[in-house]
Amino acid sequence: MVGIGFRREFAEEMISGEHIKPDFIEFAPENWMNIGGYWKKVLHRVVEKYPVLCHGLSLSIGSPEELNKEFLHYVKTFLNEYKVQLYSEHLSYSKCDNAHMYDLLPIPFRMDAVKHIAGRIRQVQDYLERPLAMEIVSYYTPVAAEMSEVDFINEIVRQSGCQLLLDVNNIYVNAFNHQYDAKAFIQQLPLDKVAYIHMAGHEQVAPDLIIDTHGEPIIDPVYDLFEWTLQHLQPVPVLLERDFNIPEMQELQGELSRLKNICHKQWKLKNELVA
């Protein structure tokens, strides 16, 4: 299954399905819950047409503060109402000192943060009565790290029992920005826990820095890393994220088709080998 992030900019094209035909859609509950009017009708039309996965923005699992119970209540209601098949979030924080920042800030890679976050993931999973898939986020600087990024992630997965959302573009971006080997990094992850893959484009803003913009097409080296990664995974849903500089639908469909072809090639081959 290869899906796309559902955006208002191309809602009608998605519903018509004339130029773009994803296998599923993904959206952030925060952008759609507790609204009415025109966009609620659009939401109902699109969820009738496509299976839905949700990717949250405001959980802020890495926050020092308590989880927001009211928010979780609305998320749970929303996920149930729209029969959402998978809920993922970010391994980062976006709220501190009781203030939202609406972006993904890097958590210090430290053992106390691991314990703190693992406990919070367990709390969320228990409350929502479903597993969380946590995305390894792109980041532009580490902050006060006391352990490696990969150890940090592995420990969180081990202690919380969560699943992983593997954003292949993020790994590419992080490997470039922090000068490590993307494949070696991926090989060290608990790949049996990967439940979902994201793919996106990015923008290089300095000779040594890439920003994860979701505003450009996926580049070939990221496709290559994706293809390599699939050889090490069981089949999972794959999502194309495109949030800015939205092109013609045919161009997005081209990216979806390319992703789908790679999935077919790699996972078909793998199934044949298993058989």
């Binding site: 890495g62 020092p64 501190c96 890097p106």
Partner: peptide, 11 residues
């Protein structure tokens, strides 16, 4: 210490 670092970063 970790709490303080996160506060400083977000501030």
């Amino acid at each position: 210490d970790t709490y303080h670092i996160q506060q400083t970063f977000s501030a």
